[in-house]
């Protein structure tokens, strides 16, 4: 089933998320067709493909916004493959199983909000979904709803303003301020999110997702609409997130500059099927990928040029800047 089922890749040995035989049908349309891939722990994994390839559908299945027609999506906390636990869980009716040193989750069985709350998968959206009328700080506090809710004793300790809640609230605010600083949004902390420029909104959405302390951060086109300088800053931010928190990142992206520079692992989709699953370098030279992205022969020349230049730019950036990192 998997083209590259070899243990030479780190993501096969220590997977965080495995998507197995995922199929999603909308009526007669097969958006995702028998897709399997793995997200390695601590990796930055990119999901790329032409428009309409089914990338966002995969995201929606992973984060529970769609229930997949078929397939299994396993999320693991704690190191190792945990194959036995996964099989045991699959045979049972449970949604997840806690173990001594971690847990396994079957995401396709879980409602959307528990995927973020329990399985610790956070996401951003292709069309930014911020709480526009709330300030940046409030946006980040909303993301810490569940721990705060427990600390507020389901509002009773909070209404009485007990010390336990006060300290939890202070911690939450500190965490929010930390992420605002990391995303260089601290000067806009008291401004409504809707007033931020586009690039800042993208970063705020990432900061908000990070405030929910995820194990896996799913980013849907984080670089869309950013200028080259902002894209470079985004690269730094994502690499900082991985280095600082150990959060694994799964991203959908069209900007090859971002993809090629920071990804450890690239999965390429076309018409809902996987056509490549390799390191960034191997994918760049894969003829199938080039054909899917560039089209064959008769496609419009202008588009080809743009994408070719894009790919080329990505190569160059990865080549020149890869050495420094």
């Amino acid at each position: 089933m998997n083209v590259t089922t070899t243990s030479r890749h780190g993501w096969e040995n220590d997977p965080l998320l495995t998507v197995e035989n995922l199929t999603m049908r909308f009526g007669g349309l097969v958006a995702v067709d028998n897709l399997s891939f793995t997200v390695g722990r601590g990796d930055i994994t990119a999901l790329i493909g032409p428009n309409g390839a089914g990338k966002t559908t995969v995201f929606n299945c992973v984060t529970g916004f769609y229930k997949p027609t078929e397939g299994r999506i396993v999320m693991r906390h704690g190191p190792g493959r945990r194959d036995e636990a996964v099989e045991e869980l699959t045979d049972s009716a449970a949604r997840y199983a806690r173990q001594d040193d971690g847990a396994v989750f079957l995401l396709e069985r879980m409602p959307d909000f528990t995927i973020s709350r329990t399985a610790k998968v956070a996401r951003t959206f292709q069309n930014i979904r911020l709480f526009g009328g709330m300030t940046c700080l409030e946006n980040l506090l909303v993301a810490q709803h569940n721990p705060l809710m427990r600390a507020s004793g389901f509002s009773i300790a909070g209404l009485l303003n007990l010390p336990s809640y006060r300290s939890a609230a202070k911690n939450a605010k500190d965490r929010a301020i930390y992420w605002l600083e990391q995303c260089r949004l601290i000067h806009r902390a008291d401004d409504p999110a809707a007033d931020l420029p586009y690039g800042d909104q993208r970063r705020l959405e990432i900061a908000r997702a990070m405030c929910s302390e995820p194990h896996l951060l799913c980013l849907d086109e984080p670089a869309a609409g950013l200028n080259p300088r902002e894209s470079a800053e985004l690269n730094d931010l994502l690499q900082f997130i991985r280095a600082e928190t150990g959060t694994s990142i799964l991203l959908i992206e069209h900007d090859m500059g971002v993809v090629m520079k920071i990804s450890d692992h690239v999965v390429v989709l076309d018409y809902g099927r996987k056509i490549a699953d390799e390191t960034a370098e191997a994918v760049r030279n894969d003829p199938k990928v080039i054909a899917a992205y560039l089209g064959v022969d008769d496609e419009s020349e202008i588009e080809d040029e743009e994408i070719r230049a894009d790919l080329h730019r990505g190569e160059q950036q990865a080549g020149t800047e890869g050495g420094e990192a």
Binding site: F113, T118, A122, F131, S212
Partner: peptide
Amino acid sequence: IACRSLGIN
């Protein structure tokens, strides 16, 4: 939808 993505029931 953003609420649900942040784990809010």
